[in-house]
Design a protein around this nucleic acid. Structure first.
Lengths: 244, 244
DNA sequence: CGTCGTCTTGACCAAAGTCAACGCACGTGG
DNA sequence: CCACGTGCGTTGACTTTGGTCAAGACGACG
């Protein structure tokens, strides 16, 4: 369990190191790991809530459903991410949070978080900063979905996922578990599933990446970045990359 | 000048009223109104900065330029908006901020803002909240650009603009100044200028809105909202609308 | 009165969507 | 152990939406 809080700490510390006091506050967070199956909603549009959700394991996405049944995924989330920090200060959820795989989560009471921000302003600022990085990702997605070709768009998405997974140690030499379907990639890239399929084949023939079954095989990182016009600056990792 | 700070105060107070102490802090903010012409950059991608920019008058947008010269506008901003609050906690800008009209701006030093958050945690939270609303707008734009038809997309954008302008008192009975070109609407909706033109004509023939020259004429608010699938909840105005 | 920027139009084109059928792999139950 | 069903990936034919190109109109402003 302590190892799971480490992920959050590591993420917050990408900005600046925590004092031992601040660190202790985080380490003292009570963890009530709760397992949830795949394809369940952890939060729904229109709901208000009294706690945030820390993702301990598994994969999750934010999405909205339109009137005509279309779905738009707005972000993916990995272990160590606090999923709905926006609920702390905004009234109702404007989107859903759904599990892509079986996950473990633990709630963090809003009261706890507000208390942190009050008593440890620097910690509060790191949380704020975390939401700003999220916002930067949304901006990048606007560009991605709005202005890039199907191929570039898909490549860019995969670059983002790989970079973020590698930052939490979830890649192993040019390979990572990526248990998502092409329908989900379609909903994230605003393409049709059929077209995603063709694009994926294209990326494969070009020897850039291969997504087979539930694992992603990176063949040519530089090439993939170029195909997607990917510049990781918006993720704010300060240039530190665990990738080759 | 004091009137201009009022806009910011009014915006922050949409969440909860400020104490007289907090109010005073804001009112004491020194204003150095600086005029800037249209089509200038107030901030550039890659830059770091030591202050944020408060928009006093005029219109501004955030945008990114892609390798192939395409532009994507990611948001519009109106008087009372703090333009680059993200620069307070994130290193380098990941996008540009450009003026659409002649504007007046005043800088607010990062030091001042950080001091506020330290000494008036509630005020800090309101600023944080403001950035969360921005993030909600970016999410909405992902949906808009990703999943809506050209017509719905344009209608939705106009709905957002109208709602936000009206919230700062910049609409006058079904009319508002909207000094933007169709090229700018194209860059915001990820359409081509030619197609925006056709869509605008369509909206006009359907008697929903008319954008002639630099003023926007609302003919059928309910119809426009429906055409755009617009639900203002994400703007967090708590249902308070100045619209008929 | 002319010029520049913006809007408008029409003809044509391309990217991606839709529909429908088929295959393949895995898991379940007889 | 095989038969079947279900969910996902794959393919091809055809359609649609919106993009591109190029020319011309319109309107504000010097």
């Amino acid at each position: 369990m302590a190892a799971m809080i480490e992920l959050l700490i590591r993420k917050l510390e990408q900005f600046g190191t925590l004092s031992s006091e601040e660190r202790r506050v985080l380490e003292d967070l009570p963890i009530n790991a709760r397992p949830v199956e795949a394809d369940q909603d952890l939060a729904r549009e229109g709901q208000a809530s009294s706690h945030c959700i820390l993702l301990l394991s598994g994969m999750v996405c934010r999405y909205r459903l339109l009137q005509n049944g279309q779905r738009q995924i707005m972000s993916f989330h990995f272990p160590g991410d606090i999923l709905d920090l926006t609920s702390l200060l905004l009234g109702k959820m404007d989107h859903n949070i759904g599990t892509l795989t079986p996950v473990e989560v633990t709630p963090i009471a809003h009261a706890t978080l507000l208390d942190w921000t009050e008593r440890h302003p620097r910690l509060g600022r790191l949380l704020w900063r975390d939401t700003l990085v999220d916002a930067a990702m949304f901006r990048e997605w606007v560009v991605n979905v709005g202005r890039r070709s199907a191929l570039a768009r898909t490549a860019h998405l995969l670059c983002e996922i790989i970079t973020r997974l590698s930052s939490v140690g979830l890649t192993h030499d040019h390979t990572c578990d990526l248990p998502i379907t092409s329908a989900e990639i379609a909903d994230a890239t605003s393409l049709s599933m059929v077209h995603v399929n063709r694009v994926l084949q294209d990326l494969r023939t070009k020897n850039l990446v291969e997504l087979r079954g539930k694992t992603l095989l990176m063949l040519d990182w530089a090439g993939l970045q170029q195909a997607g016009g990917f510049d990781p600056a918006y993720l704010q990792y300060g240039g530190v990359s665990a990738l080759a």
